[in-house]
Design a protein around this nucleic acid. Structure first.
Lengths: 208, 208
DNA sequence: AGCCAAGAGCGACAGGTGTCGCGTTAAGAT
DNA sequence: ATCTTAACGCGACACCTGTCGCTCTTGGCT
C-alpha cells in the first residue's frame, strides 16, 4: 500500500526529515529546470540531493509523488485571483499567469501534465489543482455581474473561465505554438464577448 | 520519414517486412487498449507481436516512433471536415469527433499527448497532426461566411476553431471531467456567439 | 533458379529502476 | 540525560531498457 498515512501515532516531521525534504525538492526543481519533465528521474533527484535512492522511493514513491509534494510545498493555497477592475482585465491577467506558468522553465504545470499520464496520483493532483483554481476564480464572474458588465441572469462561471483559458493551454501545450504575447488578451476578449452574448447563461429548459 | 529516409538505394517494404509491421502495429493497438498510454512499452509490444525486441528498437526507435507510424498507417489523410449545413452544426460535429477520440480506448490522441512530453518526434507529429486538422477545418468558416452566418469581414478561422474545440480538450484531458454529451454543442454555440460578436475579426490597427 | 544484401533473430552487455532486509542515526518524549 | 523508534544509509537483488555484433532468413532482382 502507500505510505503510513496518519495511522502511526507519532511521526517526526522536523530536523533531519525536514532538511532532506528540502534538499530533495530543491533537486526536483533543478532537474526540472535542466532537462524538462522527461529528465525528472528518481535516481537523478536522489543523486543531486545527496540522498540515498531508497529514501526517495520510500517517502515519495514515484516521480508523480515528487511533483505532488512540490506543489504542496509551493503553497499555492495563498494564491489569489486577479482583480483589475474589469472582467476582461481579470481574465487577461489570469491568462497571462497561465501562459507564464506553461512557458517558464522549470514548468511545474507541464511536468505535472506529463506525469499525469503515468501516475494516478499526479493525475488526481492535477485535476484537484485546476478544479480549485477555477472555483477560486468564479468570484471574477460574480464581480463582473455586480459591476453590471454581465447580465444579471445566472452565468455559468466555470464554463466562462474555461472558455477564456482553454485556448492558451491549447496553443502552448498541444499546438506548441510560438509565444504570443497577445494571446491572453485576445482569448479573454473572446470569452467576454461570448458571455455578453449570453453564451454562458442557462437556456430555456426545453431542448435539453 | 522516421526511419532511414530514401538514402538506401534499394529497400524491401514487402513480404516479411510488411508482415512484421502489421504485427507490431496491431500489438501497439492492443497494448494501448489494455493498459492505456503508460502501458505502451517497447518490450510489451515486441513480446505481444512475437518479434524480437531489437527489431522494434531498430525500426521504430522508441514509443514515439511507434505512435507516429501508427498514425501514418491509420491514414488520417483522407479525413474530411464535417459539413452539416451550419457553422454551429459543423463545430458541434467536430467537437463530438474530438471528444470521442479522447474518450475512446485505445485513444491514440491521448497516447500521443503522453508521448509528446518524452519524445521530440512524437511532439512534432502531434503539432503537425493538429495543425493540419485545423488548416483543413478553415473551410468550415469560409462556408459560414458564404452562407452569411458570419460578417464578410475577415475572420481568423484558426482562432475561431481553437476557441470552439479547446474547451473539450480542457475538460477531458486536463480536468478529467466526466463525459458530458452536451459539451460539444455548448462549446460550439459559445464560439459561434463570439464570432457573431466579432471576436475573431481583425481589430483597428491601432493597439497592435 | 540463383544471387545478395536488407532486414529479422539471437544473446550478451551496460546502465537504469524499484524493492528489500538490516544496521545506524537522531527526533521527540520522558 | 536517557530511551524508543521513525526515518535514513547501505548494499544486494531481480527486473527492465536500450545497444551492439553477429548469424540467419528471405524479398527483390537478374
Amino acid at each position: 500500500m502507500t505510505n503510513p498515512p496518519a495511522t502511526s501515532p507519532d511521526r517526526r516531521p522536523g530536523g533531519r526529515t525536514a532538511r532532506i525534504r528540502a534538499q530533495v525538492l530543491d533537486a526536483v526543481r533543478a532537474e526540472l529546470a535542466e532537462g524538462g519533465p522527461s529528465a525528472l528521474t528518481m535516481e537523478g533527484v536522489a543523486k543531486r540531493a545527496g540522498v540515498h535512492r531508497a529514501t526517495v522511493y520510500r517517502r515519495w514513491r514515484d516521480v508523480g509523488g515528487l511533483l505532488v509534494d512540490l506543489i504542496d510545498a509551493a503553497g499555492e493555497l495563498d494564491w489569489q485571483p486577479p482583480d483589475t477592475g474589469s472582467l476582461c482585465g481579470d481574465l487577461t491577467a489570469l491568462n497571462q499567469e497561465i501562459q507564464e506558468s506553461l512557458v517558464v522553465r522549470p514548468s511545474f504545470a507541464v511536468a505535472l501534465m506529463a506525469a499525469s499520464f503515468h501516475f494516478d496520483r499526479a493525475a488526481r493532483a492535477q485535476t484537484r489543482l485546476w478544479t480549485d483554481r477555477y472555483a477560486q476564480c468564479e468570484i471574477l464572474v460574480e464581480r463582473a455581474v455586480e459591476r453590471g458588465e454581465l447580465p444579471a441572469r445566472h452565468t455559468d462561471a466555470r464554463a466562462l473561465l474555461i472558455a477564456a483559458t482553454a485556448p492558451v493551454y491549447h496553443q502552448v501545450v498541444l499546438l506548441r505554438a510560438e509565444f504570443d504575447p497577445h494571446l491572453p488578451r485576445r482569448a479573454a476578449e473572446m470569452a467576454v464577448l461570448a458571455a455578453e452574448a449570453g453564451a454562458f447563461t442557462a437556456r430555456r429548459p426545453e431542448g435539453v
